[in-house]
């Protein structure tokens, strides 16, 4: 405990921690936002064209077997970015999160009851408006569940980026390990978990605000 107090007592450490935290937030949440957009577009494509579904299922099955560490390194080799560029982590996590979200979103869109769809059409909704105002909102609970899993796993995975030298709270683990110093490791673990928890809470609040109709059934 004394160690940690001493560690945190240093103003330079504190400002470094803030930078790492902000890096971590950037690296884990930017992929999340991109993935939500991609997943909705791809989910819609899956729903309309069967073959997109087939392709995505096979791609995601393969993608999930590739360790994040390897993906962080392979991406620069394939697209020619610098090994240390944060964009590698963003791309890798976007790939993971999108594949995580597409399937449930496609299923949720398919699960919108046909009578609801038919009623919306009968009331004169144009297909795009119907999608944005009827089908997509009904898919929000499923999307929210996927986004929550994705945010937790992204926040945890960004730490691995420290092994290839991108920023984020993971740097605390490699630093602590090299210096045989526990304090930064503990601080890193706690900050990572608190970040995950806070993001999760925000997502829950956001979901509840977007789906007022589910309030009755929620405890």
């Amino acid at each position: 405990m004394g160690d940690i107090a001493k560690y945190l007592g240093d103003a330079g450490t504190r400002s470094a921690l803030l930078t790492m935290l902000l890096d971590h937030i950037y690296l884990s949440l930017v992929p999340l936002v991109i993935s939500v957009v991609l997943a909705v577009v791809l989910g819609l494509a899956c729903h309309r064209f069967r073959w997109v579904n087939t392709v995505l299922v096979s791609v995601s099955n393969v993608l999930y077997t590739i360790p994040s560490l390897a993906l962080f390194v392979i991406i620069p080799a394939v697209i020619g970015t610098s090994v240390l560029a944060p964009v590698n982590v963003v791309i890798a996590l976007t790939l993971y999160t999108t594949t995580l979200l597409v399937r449930p979103v496609a299923e949720a869109l398919a699960a919108v009851p046909d009578h609801v769809r038919a009623a919306a059409t009968a009331m004169g909704f144009r297909p795009w408006r119907r999608f944005l105002t009827v089908e997509l909102p009904l898919a929000v609970p499923v999307l929210a569940a996927g986004v929550r899993v994705g945010s937790v796993s992204n926040i945890s995975l960004v730490s691995v980026g420290a092994l290839i030298g991108t920023g984020g709270l993971g740097v605390l683990f490699t630093d602590g390990f090299r210096q045989r110093y526990l304090a930064p490791i503990i601080v890193g673990i706690v900050l990572t978990m608190v970040l995950a928890l806070v993001v999760d809470l925000i997502l829950v609040v956001l979901r509840n605000a977007l789906t007022p109709w589910t309030k009755a059934g929620r405890s």
Partner: peptide, 11 residues
């Protein structure tokens, strides 16, 4: 699930 494995291993 939020517990970073790298952090836990080094810890």
């Amino acid at each position: 699930r939020a517990l970073p494995t790298l952090g836990l291993v080094t810890f």
